[in-house]
Design a binder for these strands. Structure first.
Length: 154
DNA sequence: GCCAACGTTGGC
DNA sequence: GCCAACGTTGGC
């Protein structure tokens, strides 16, 4: 089983939105970066676990744990002219963008803030993609060791 | 294939 | 709102 970290801006779609979704499940649409897409399209498996990370907000950090419940399939919002993620170059026959379905397993009682994670950047969390200099990928892998360590911070 | 211009991300 | 980092675009 693989582990992941997936970013979302809480003002757009936060952990509370997921908690309120039917079956606490949503399709993770809107990823428009090839590397992040590749992770979703090719590497995510049903049963994989992912941290829900709030980005671009007052207190960036991990706020929940999700489970992948459906593997990669075409992101239909890329074909929606009225969607922010509309991509006129995406081809119905050969979709460019993919998404997965994720289900909220639990919302953390306390967020694990980016500040907190950074405290371990040079030791236990050395190499965590989220903490790499300049990293902007919205979907990144998390090693099993990092995953376990972060959960203990919760 | 190079690379300047441009747009986006996301922490601060 | 600022701006560093990075990805993409497109002219050459």
């Amino acid at each position: 089983m693989n582990h992941w970290l997936m970013k979302s801006e809480p003002e757009v779609f936060g952990v509370d939105d997921l908690a309120k979704s039917p079956r606490r499940t949503t399709h993770w649409n809107g990823v428009r970066n090839y590397q992040a897409r590749n992770f979703m399209r090719s590497d995510m498996r049903v049963g994989d676990l992912a941290f829900f990370y709030h980005s671009n907000c007052d207190e960036p950090g991990i706020v929940g744990v999700m489970k992948v419940v459906k593997t990669g399939y075409p992101d239909h919002t890329a074909f929606d002219r009225n969607d922010d993620g509309f991509d006129p170059d995406s081809d119905l026959e050969q979709p460019r963008w993919y998404m997965v379905d994720v289900q909220l397993q639990r919302k953390l009682a306390q967020p694990i803030t980016l500040v907190k994670l950074r405290e371990h950047a040079n030791r236990a969390l050395k190499g965590l993609a989220l903490l790499q200099r300049g990293n902007r990928l919205s979907v990144t892998p998390v090693s099993a060791a990092h995953w376990d360590f972060i959960l203990e911070l919760a």
